[in-house]
Each structure stands twice: as structure tokens, then as C-alpha cells.
Design a protein around this nucleic acid. Structure first.
Lengths: 350, 350
DNA sequence: ATGAAAGCGCTAACAT
DNA sequence: ATGTTAGCGCTTTCAT
């Protein structure tokens, strides 16, 4: 039984030892030749590279990861992978990460705290080099995040962040986004602006309400409590809220909705009841969902720059990993939102 | 210098050796106790588990992967991660995979052959246990796929497949989808049906044209060459094609478009020129993009069941990995498409 | 029921 | 410029 083992038996794949044996040199020399950086003779390097090519050698990065303690992998945790905004963010992360030689593992929480804890644990076990999180709606305690930090793994938040935990983070300025949207309506000449504000225990919705109030205040417009709704931001709730608004004695002339989908509900109600948009009622949404450009009239909305957020948070990660754990400073990047103006909010003739 | 090393120094994380040392037993016993399956005394198992818990031990899966030659990871290759259809597929894969203890690495090709080759190589190097691919538009040669098979890594295709390579695959029946759509129009009483067919070098578009033809033939309706367009399926091309159709002496009374977006172009043209939908012209699209349900009138379209395709291809992978490489048989799963009927195609009064 | 030892494939400190 | 050696953390035979 004296076969010369030519290929790794388990995997059936070529290893540096195979190459070493065939060239009668040591494995470390092969390793050096392939990584290129160490001093090695031109001749052996060429020999090694050619043979590696010929045998179609592919390095086992699992072994490298174990040896070096790095995985060149980033873990992502999002509520839903297939929500337009998040898949744009993921696209941005993937692009930036892969340019820097990192792979990306994606997990979703479905807004469940338990799933989030489990995903974080799995990513730690996989020894990812960093974890990028948009926090689930159901998250109450933060121990799992502190675990990540305690282990020295870079943790970054995007979009849905937690103030209590010190990390790098990237988000859009919801206050300013709302301010811009309402200011635009005011500039167009609308004076009685309603707001679908959403549940106020959620951070971003509070900020959007704040921006709405600020814009009104700044322009000396009064706030009308009957004009503000705190329902969930569904299409149906948008429809119903609009119904209520239109039955008031003093109707508003514009709606700023904190979500596109409830803005859609509003528009459906208005159309069904023969009101003209924007003449009888202007509408502005939030998120710039693909359908907003397709509706008739087009729905003015706030673009949240998902792709840019992804690029930003991945870049922050790359920055952070360059620094020693002690030198780390947690940068906060606020992305300026953009108001995409369409017909649903244009009063002035142009 | 006689410190007892308590924790792995590189990673700063607890290992089975730390636990072994503290309990004065061997690492293999710890390993057994934690994996649970081998015969071990109840007492030691409990001791080990409690200490592991207390120290918050997290197994290093990289080490396990190296040792076992498996990574419990599936690689996915798609053209674009943030296209609605693909992100639904990915959602289905992620769900199914994570239930079976697999993680998922996602890569995108942006329809580029070179990117596809590179991604496949990276996934091989990462020693993923399987690779699930929806082939890029730019792919001309198949050597990179054969590499995967040669290495014994399960390879599966979904949606965009390659007939020349023997693999498990999951897709929808495009022929039947088109047939159903056109049959529906015929049943509604439309007799002169145009088709935005798309570039015919692409598999699925040929099949859709086939289904269109079959439905016409079966109903004894004649085909009119002026009614078929082979342009790219953009909104603009849909608009222009419709313009041409409406200027014909013998106009069609319905359009079946192989994509929603060009159907949208058609609808925009029709609305802008005062034609009523579906009275003057019925329209059916393909893909059931979110906007189809939001338009007015709603656009009848073919639902491609992305989530189901994801579940299907992940399940096929799990099946395949149970079998020895020799016993493998490549199952082909065809998902029955569903026609989502909305107002844009309803002639009969109801 | 438990331990000793070997090794997955790679890298890197230390030699020469 | 190259080889030797050790070890990343785990699993798994082979002993006892």
C-alpha cells in the first residue's frame, strides 16, 4: 500500500502539499509563491504558479480563515431581504464589500427578536469579520449586540439603529426628509396639510412628525390635531384616514404620509370619490417605492437612498477594521434624503 | 512565564480546550459532550454543558468546517439581488436553508459573464456545500459550471437554466404561462391579440412566444406578423410598439406582453391617447411586479412564484446532498405559473 | 466512558 | 531563498 497521495482525499481538491510534492519543494514555499509577497526566487514562483494553474488549484479559504482568524466575510441582518429598500441596501453592501475582497452572508429576522438573536449567534460562530444590522421591530433587549462588541467584532447599524449602543451607523435624516416634503407642499401654496404619522413608539416616525411640525411652525401655519393620524401605515388605513379628512368641515388641501403605501390608500379614496389630485388634494409619500413613479399621477415621495446607505455602512466597516479595537471611533453618517417631486404635489402651473 | 492560557489568544474566544482544562478532562470528551451523540456519562455531559453555557462558549464553525470538509453554507448566484423576483427567490432559499441549518452566501453577476465566473470561483474557494444559480444574460461558455460539477459540489439552476448541463433545476413553465394568458384573453372574447415577444435568443422568450402561438392556433385564430414585436422589453419600446399597433388599419384588440414593464408602456400610450382599457384594448403583462396591482386599471399578469422557486431549489439541494455523488439524479421541477387576473383584461361584463 | 493522537489545509515564526 | 515546525479549533479513530 504505497500509493503516493496526489490529491486531498476528503475534498478531492488540490492542496499546496500536492504542488509541493510534485515540485519537490516545501509547502511553505508554495504558500509563499502563491501569496506572492515574500521573497522567493522568480524561477520557483513561476514554476509553482504554472503548476497551480495547470492543476486548477483553488485555495481552501476555510483553512486560511482558521489559520488567520479572519473570514473575509461580513454578516448582514435585516428584517426582510425582499423589501425594496433593504434589497437596495444589500446591493450596496455587496458591491462595496466584494470590491474589497469580502463576501457577504445575509440573514433575515422577519421582525422577530428571537430570530435576530439566533442570527447574530450564527454569525459569531461563523467568525464573520463584521456584522451590519438593521434592527428588527420586535427587539426589546440588546444583550446580543453587546455580545458582538464584547468579542471585538465590528458592529454597525443602518437605517434602524439603537441609540443606547455605541457603534458606527448610517441612516437618512428622517426629520429633514419630512421637513423637506412639507416645505415643498407649502412652497407650492398648500396651507392645510394633514399627516399620516404612524406609530410613535418607532423612532423614525417620531422624527418624521417632528419635521412636519417644524416646517409648519417655520411658515407660521397652525397645526390641526384632526389632521394627524397615528394608525399603522397600511393602504387601508390611508384610505380610511382620507375618508375622515374629506368629511371634515374644514378639509385639508394636502396630505403628507410617512409611507407610500398609505399615500396610495389616500389616492385610491380620492380617485374613487371623484376628487382631483393635486387640485383638490395634494399627496406626498415616503420611501419612493417603485410604484410611485408608475401611478397616475406620479406620487411625490422621499427617496431613502438604500443603495447609498449600503455603500456607506460597508465603507464604515472597512474603515473600522483598519483600526485597532481601541482606536475605534464610531462614526455616524447621515445621508441627505432627496424629495422626488412628481405630479401629485404640484399646484403651481408650470 | 508560566501562565495558564485560559482563552484562545487569537480570537479571544472560549474553546473546547479551555473547558477541558477547567474541568480536568480531555478536549475530545468536551467535544463529545457538546455534540451530544456519543456515549458519555450523564454527569460529565451536564458539567460540560453548564460550563460552556456559563463561559458563553460559541463553537468555531470555521474549525468544524475545515475538519469535516463541509461548510453548512449554500452559495447563490443571481443577476441582481434587488430585482423583485430574485429577492423573492432568495427569501425562499434562505428560509428553507436556514430551517435545515444552512447559511446562505449571496453573490450577484450584474448579468456579466466575467462576474459569474469570479463568483463561482469564490464560492468554490469558500467550500460551500452547494451552488444555486440563475444564469447571467452574458454567459456564453459553461466551463465554470463544469468545474463545480467536477469537484463534486452540487450545482442547481433556477429560473434561467442551461439545458446542456445536467443539474437539478427549478423553473416555471413559460410556455404554459403564456398559453394561459392568451387563452384567458380569448375566453374573454378578444380575437386579435398582439404580442411583445422580446429577444428570441433568450430561452424564456421563445417559450412565451410558443405558448402564445399555441393558444391562438388551438382557438383557430390567425397569427398576424404585424402584431408581434421582438424589441427589448422596456417601457419605451412598449409605448412605441403600441403606437405602431394603433396606427394599423386593422388594430388588435388586446396585447400580451412578455414583461410587465413594456405592458406599462403600452398602457401609458393608450391612456395618453384617450383609449380605454380594456374596452378599446386589453393588456396582459408578465411577472406580476408589485406595481401591477397598484395601477389603474390593475394589470393582469403572470405570477412567477419566486418564493416557491426558492423553496423548491433549496429543497432539491437538500435532497441531492443526502445522496452519494453517484446516486445523484437530477430532478427537474416545473412550477405551475398563476395568471393573476385584473381589470386590464376583462371584457365580459360581470 | 474517556483519553491520546492525528490531521483537515493553511500560514508564519524561526531557522539555515 | 527555502525548509522545518508548530498550531489555528475541531472531530474522530484507536486505544484502554
Amino acid at each position: 500500500m504505497n500509493f503516493i497521495r496526489l490529491f486531498g482525499m476528503k475534498t478531492g481538491q488540490v492542496t499546496i502539499h500536492d504542488i509541493a510534492r510534485m515540485l519537490d519543494i516545501s509547502a511553505s514555499t508554495v504558500s509563499r509563491a502563491l501569496s506572492g509577497n515574500t521573497r522567493i526566487s522568480r524561477a520557483t514562483r513561476d514554476k509553482v504558479k504554472m503548476l497551480a494553474e495547470k492543476l486548477n488549484y483553488q485555495p481552501n479559504v476555510v483553512a486560511t480563515n482558521l489559520r488567520t482568524g479572519k473570514s473575509k466575510t461580513i454578516g448582514i441582518v435585516v428584517p426582510h431581504i425582499n423589501r425594496n429598500f433593504f434589497s437596495n441596501v444589500i446591493g450596496g453592501i455587496e458591491q462595496t464589500a466584494s470590491n474589497a475582497g469580502y463576501r457577504v452572508i445575509i440573514t433575515q429576522t422577519h421582525e422577530l427578536y428571537e430570530k435576530e438573536v439566533e442570527n447574530i449567534r450564527a454569525l459569531i460562530n461563523a467568525r464573520v469579520d463584521g456584522i451590519l444590522v438593521s434592527v428588527s421591530g420586535g427587539t426589546k433587549t440588546y444583550d446580543h449586540f453587546n455580545q458582538v462588541k464584547k468579542r471585538g467584532i465590528p458592529l454597525l447599524f443602518f437605517d434602524r439603529t439603537i441609540d443606547e449602543i455605541e457603534t458606527g451607523r448610517v441612516m437618512i435624516d428622517d426629520f429633514r426628509a419630512a421637513y423637506k416634503a412639507v416645505k415643498h407642499l407649502i412652497d407650492e401654496g398648500f396651507k392645510h396639510i394633514a399627516h399620516f404619522a404612524g406609530p410613535q413608539h418607532i423612532n423614525i416616525y417620531r422624527k418624521r412628525l417632528g419635521g412636519y411640525q417644524e416646517a409648519l411652525k417655520e411658515s407660521g401655519l397652525s397645526m390641526n390635531e384632526d389632521f394627524i393620524f397615528f394608525d399603522n401605515l397600511t393602504e387601508e388605513k390611508g384610505w380610511k384616514a382620507t375618508e375622515k379628512l374629506m368629511k371634515l368641515k374644514n378639509r385639508p388641501d394636502a396630505i403628507f404620509s410617512a409611507s407610500d403605501i398609505s399615500a396610495l390608500g389616500a389616492i385610491k379614496y380620492l380617485k374613487e370619490h371623484g376628487f382631483r389630485i393635486p387640485e383638490d388634494m395634494a399627496v406626498v409619500g415616503f420611501a419612493n417605492e417603485p410604484f410611485t413613479s408608475i401611478m397616475d399621477p406620479g406620487l411625490t415621495s422621499v427617496e431613502q437612498k438604500g443603495y447609498l446607505i449600503g455603500v456607506g455602512v460597508a465603507s464604515l466597516f472597512l474603515e473600522e477594521i483598519m483600526q485597532s479595537a481601541e482606536a475605534r471611533q464610531f462614526r455616524k453618517v447621515i445621508i441627505e434624503p432627496e424629495l422626488i417631486i412628481r405630479k401629485s404635489s404640484l399646484k403651481k402651473s408650470r
